[in-house]
């Protein structure tokens, strides 16, 4: 709610002070530039909902981008076939995370910290740190730069993924079991939920969508490099937490995550268009995002405290004021 108001305030502020902020081309830029991080945030959300975390998605994005580039350029695969293999690899990588987390019962933070280095290391090994892939057919690059029915092509992919995940989290038993696991894994297990399978599903989904983000990023930048997606996992986590999902798991919403992504994307873009701070906008948006995150978390705690106090007062007052509902 507060975040939605913040987003509206951003729009008003930046359209007044930013140069050409509301121009359609710029709004298209905002969407294009935040699609990959948005996708990662969308799949990070269910993972965090279960009380877990996936630090490996940014590195996996780099690995998948390099694999995709190599398959198209060196092995001569069509972009479609290469994309299918890349998504499969993403799924397997996510499955590897899931295996370690569910079978060996290792903490997700440690497992994905390990694969964070592992995936990036593999990407660098494949390219020996220097090779880049940039020979892609125009039909594939359209995914990153063309528009379809008035929207940037990748926005349609994003909307589709967001829709699927919204339904999964808010309208199916998957969402309910992820929440239950986040509240109490033991409780969920005693309640007869297939905890391992539900957890694995969230991590595999994160892997597949990270691969999808890799393909979209490659199409946008027209080049695949081993350092693609560096730091994206933290930006995704920031958006999820800013969007109201508890880092301890159990509560959160997909639309909140979408608002979180939008708030950060608009902030970064808008600040870079205010003449007086153009040169330091990137640093400033980092500072403001951090401040916003802390304010949001502290505000949440404060609100909870206030509402609890009000509830306590109400319960103590109930006997003297009979309700007529």
């Amino acid at each position: 709610m507060i975040l939605a108001a913040f987003l509206v305030a951003e729009f008003i502020l930046f359209s007044a002070t930013g140069r050409n902020f509301l121009q359609p081309d710029n709004l298209t830029n905002i969407v294009r530039h935040s699609t990959e991080i948005g996708l990662l945030a969308l799949v990070m959300m269910p993972v965090i909902l279960t009380g877990g975390i996936d630090l490996s998605v940014g590195s996996l994005l780099g690995l998948c981008a390099v694999l995709f580039g190599k398959m198209v350029q060196d092995a001569g695969l069509s972009p479609g076939a290469a994309a299918a293999v890349t998504l499969l690899v993403g799924g397997i990588a996510g499955g590897f995370n899931a295996l370690l987390i569910t079978r060996l019962r290792l903490p997700p933070l440690i497992v994905t910290l390990g694969t964070f280095s592992l995936f990036r290391g593999l990407a660098e090994a494949i390219t020996k740190g220097t090779a880049t892939y940039s020979k892609f057919p125009d039909s594939f690059l359209a995914l990153g730069s063309a528009t379809f029915l008035g929207l940037p092509t990748q926005a349609w992919v994003f909307v589709a993924v967001a829709g699927v995940i919204w339904i999964l989290v808010h309208r199916t038993t998957f969402g309910r079991s992820w929440r239950a696991i986040g509240f109490s894994p033991e409780g969920a297990r005693y309640a007869g939920l297939p905890v391992e399978r539900r957890l694995a599903f969230a991590y595999v989904m994160a892997g597949v969508v990270a691969a999808l983000a890799a393909i979209i990023l490659t199409a946008r930048v027209t080049q695949a490099r081993a350092d693609a997606g560096t730091g994206y996992e933290l930006l995704a986590i920031t958006a999820v937490v800013l969007g109201g999902t508890s880092i301890f798991g159990g509560t959160g919403s997909v639309h909140g995550t979408l608002l979180g992504v939008a708030a950060i994307a608009v902030l970064t873009n808008g600040l870079s268009r205010i003449p007086s701070i153009m040169g330091v906008s990137r640093e400033l948006s980092g500072v403001l995002t951090g401040a916003l995150l802390i304010a949001a978390l502290a505000g949440g705690v404060l609100m909870k405290f206030l509402s609890e106090r009000r509830a306590r007062r109400q319960t103590s007052a109930t006997p003297s004021t009979p309700s007529n509902a």
Partner: peptide, 17 residues
């Protein structure tokens, strides 16, 4: 909230010429 979210998304993505 979901309505607002959709509206915000539409505002950002809806950028026809």
């Amino acid at each position: 909230l979901p309505i607002l979210a959709c509206a915000a998304l539409a505002l950002i993505t809806g950028c026809g010429p």
